[in-house]
């Protein structure tokens, strides 16, 4: 079994219903790319010279907040999703 092949989405569980909980202020972003590198779910993309968050991030984010923590200019805002929604670690 080559672990690089597994579909990460298939081994994570998410409860729907949260509003937005991550955002980026592109005026503050210095394009250091650290968020792109650190997100294990690959939820940050660079499009036309701008960092954007994947549209389906609410169904994939594991809520580690690494993108928020690693962002030196403070462009990324992070709050936890609404109570009772978001990622569930059944074997946490």
């Amino acid at each position: 079994m080559n672990i690089n092949d597994f579909d990460l989405k298939s081994i994570s569980t998410h409860i729907e219903g949260t509003g937005d909980f991550i955002s980026i202020d592109n005026d503050k972003c210095n394009l250091c790319n650290r968020c792109l590198v650190i997100c294990i779910m690959n939820l940050w993309k660079k499009r036309e010279g701008k960092i954007v968050l994947a549209e389906d991030y609410k169904q994939k984010c594991v809520e580690c907040a690494a993108c928020y923590q690693v962002c030196e200019p403070g462009a990324i805002s992070f709050q936890y999703p609404a109570g009772g929604t978001g990622v569930v670690f059944e074997q946490g």
Binding site: M1, N4, I11, A66, F89, G92
Partner: peptide, 28 residues
Amino acid sequence: LNYVVNLKHFQRLIKMLGAKPREVQAHL
């Protein structure tokens, strides 16, 4: 992490135990 899991020795353990990936997690 995948590098570790893909070590020959780790793969042997997975095979012996009949192990299957079940959940991905990350935290600070």
